[in-house]
Design a protein around this nucleic acid. Structure first.
Lengths: 337, 337
DNA sequence: AAACGTCCTGTTACGCGTAACATCTTACCG
DNA sequence: CGGTAAGATGTTACGCGTAACAGGACGTTT
């Protein structure tokens, strides 16, 4: 019977045709260099054996894998899912494979993932933070692969950052809330990553600028609808007369909104609510949620384009690519006076 | 100056220490086999050079990559994001790397992704469908890697399927709706994949069983909140006197719900609404959404455990692992009489 | 002191696709 | 018909970590 047969190699195909594996290899990469008589025979042998191209030997000798490592803190956070979609829409047609890894907002996990990805010889890296351990920076320098950092537009820690200005965005939304008469607001934050800190900064600056006292509620837990509800109840205890909630993302905002509905608090009359990112649901719900619409899919696309350019040998472009955000007032803030 | 230096290899480390690369390799894999005097020197050399382990040569000679290919149709669909989370929670601590790929519900794209993943020598594959092209089945057979198919509990096309019974789940929810007095219902389907078809089947069976006429509205577009709103308007035109909506997922259901709210249609008095999957938001919204709670994270975990067992050499377990689902009546159906 | 064991390090060979170069055939030119 | 070019195929070497085996140094046993 068939003993445990191993996956066919180029040599197996070549033997069947009666040529060397080099000829078969050429047929696969540069068919025009092979005589038309052989082409048919080789194709037939490939089909019969079911040859599956093996990239590993080439990766070993060329140290190029045609794979790009993409590191995100979390996959359940929709923002990153949409960023990934943008990224892949460019990278996949270009013939590159994405190696996705996530590190759960932990710097040591990020370090380990990067080492693993570099162990597979990825040609480039996309990171979702601009703060890294010393070892991460060193590894990347030694590996010599191009790196792009996403979702912030602060100065890049390594080479190039693509994102939007979280601080300015939060500042702008806070001002809109104030303008609409929500002056005694609370900021809801979850999972204190860098971006959240930048947003809080923008919120606080805008509040102070208008002579108001900023107040933020933070939790280490991941954000979710239920978390938003919880924070709302806490906020009402600590600031009973609050008239506005600005959330670090739409999930918290929607959770808070429903909790208001349950408690019979009219939105936006008594409390105005604003979210961040502008997911599909923000525009679908009643009332439409006020939110900062961020260009996350665009961030992914641009990251891919810039990285591919680097892999083609082009130099690093602008070190910071700052994309515009957009304020959506929705119906969860009081109407403009 | 430093000419373009390449990433250090084991040989570079060995040269610096004055041993052969075999000794350094041993230090990394079996440190107890190296004299304690050398250990320090080697570690120092590793640190100084910033050696990053290279997995590629070993993948080449062992044909084992310690990576598992995970194929999902879409990353923006939350169901898969949560399944992935369950999968990684098992696979990552076990020291395996996940290579994620998505194929946008296209069979030819699935074929291409599988070839790519096998080209990287993945040790196993997780697929999110149970229907595949002949070539896919052949490739997998030739590659000889273990494969698990997810999210259905129909008989596996290849070796083993892990999931839940979509047809039974849809049947059960349809019966619940009928029991609650929603008899003139419409099924909302988007993106007609296999699972959607199985659900429609369950819906139709339950309706017919009770002497009712099933009616389903389908679209090829991806589901979304806005899509749910759209479908609701279409349904009202085609079935003006409908009294219930059963959606293939929570997104459509929520979109339909908000559209009812906009149109002034009372839910659940005039129209009852049910979703599928039981995402966080279903329990958070007001009214709580009736939905089928599916064990998607558990599916991911079990898939990982079963695949790892296979990689340890254990035989295929039960060919079909059928996990239970749960009906959540919420507040978007009329109360039990 | 011969025989054997233990501990440590070195040597050799291997995996497989491809770039670079070598070789052979055939064709066409003056 | 020698010479050269073009076209097709073969040969060689390489990438780098590791399993398997070999060998040297030292200690212990009888």
């Amino acid at each position: 019977m068939t003993a445990k047969r191993r996956r066919p190699t180029l040599q197996d195909v070549a033997d069947r045709v009666g040529v060397t594996k080099m000829t078969v290899s050429r047929y696969l990469k540069h068919p025009e260099q092979v005589s038309s008589a052989l082409r048919e025979t080789i194709q037939q042998a490939l089909d019969e054996l079911g040859y599956i191209p093996n990239k590993v030997p080439d990766i070993l000798s060329s140290a190029k894998s045609h794979a790009i490592g993409l590191l995100v803190p979390s996959l359940t956070n929709q923002v990153f899912a949409e960023m990934i979609r943008g990224f892949e829409s460019v990278v996949e047609p270009a013939g590159y494979q994405t190696m996705l890894a996530h590190y759960g907002y932990s710097q040591s996990a990020e370090e380990a993932r990067i080492a693993t990805l570099l162990g597979y010889s990825v040609d480039g890296l996309i990171l979702s933070e601009s703060f890294h351990t010393e070892r991460v920076r060193r590894m990347i320098k030694i590996a010599g692969v191009p790196v792009i950092e996403l979702m912030d537009s602060v100065s890049p820690a390594i080479e190039q950052a693509i994102g939007f200005d979280n601080t300015a965005a939060a500042y702008a939304m806070t001002e809109l809330m104030i303008e609409r008469g929500h002056r005694n607001t609370v900021y809801f934050a979850a999972r204190m990553d860098v971006r959240t800190r930048l947003k809080i900064l923008g919120y606080e600056r805008a509040m102070r600028r208008h002579g108001l006292e900023p107040f933020s509620l933070q939790t280490e837990e991941a954000s979710s609808f239920t978390r938003g509800a919880l924070l709302l109840r806490q906020a009402l205890v600590r600031r009973p007369n609050l008239d506005g909630i600005f959330c670090t993302n739409d999930d918290l905002a929607i959770g808070a909104f429903y909790e208001c509905q349950r408690l019979g608090i009219p939105v936006p009359q008594q409390i105005g609510i604003a979210g961040f990112h502008g997911h599909d649901i923000a525009a679908a719900m009643v009332p439409r949620l006020a939110t900062v619409v961020t260009p996350r899919e665009e961030v992914g696309r641009l990251a891919a384009e810039n990285l591919l350019a680097r892999l083609r040998g082009e130099p690093v472009g602008r070190p910071v690519i700052d994309l515009p955000f957009r304020l959506e007032a929705g119906e969860s803030l009081r109407p403009a006076s």
